[in-house]
Amino acid sequence: MRHHAPVVASAIVAAFGFGGSLRAEEPAMGKDLAATIALQGMPCDKVVSATRNGDSDYTATCKNGNRYHVFVDSSGRVVVKKL
């Protein structure tokens, strides 16, 4: 049973830590997403929450209420789509 404890713990961490919105890397990722959105010429003063949909694929919600889908397309371009 003791053997399985770390595995279970890491599974729980994985389930809660990486599944939903950003937690640990929030400030850096939020800034990155905000800068990316701004670079595409779209308004976003600050990202208040971001959800990771997959590799290089996020849904960001800005302080002004705007939501954006930020992802890297197959040709390696960063795409920002307003939702």
């Binding site: 850096a28 990722m29 800034k31 990155d32 997403l33 800068a35 990316t36 670079l39 595409q40 290089s56 930020v70 890297v72 390696g76 371009r77 960063v78």
Partner: peptide, 13 residues
């Protein structure tokens, strides 16, 4: 100082 997404976006530009 620049995040990965931002760097990639800048590189595109």
């Amino acid at each position: 100082a620049i995040g990965v997404f931002t760097k990639l976006s800048l590189k595109n530009q």
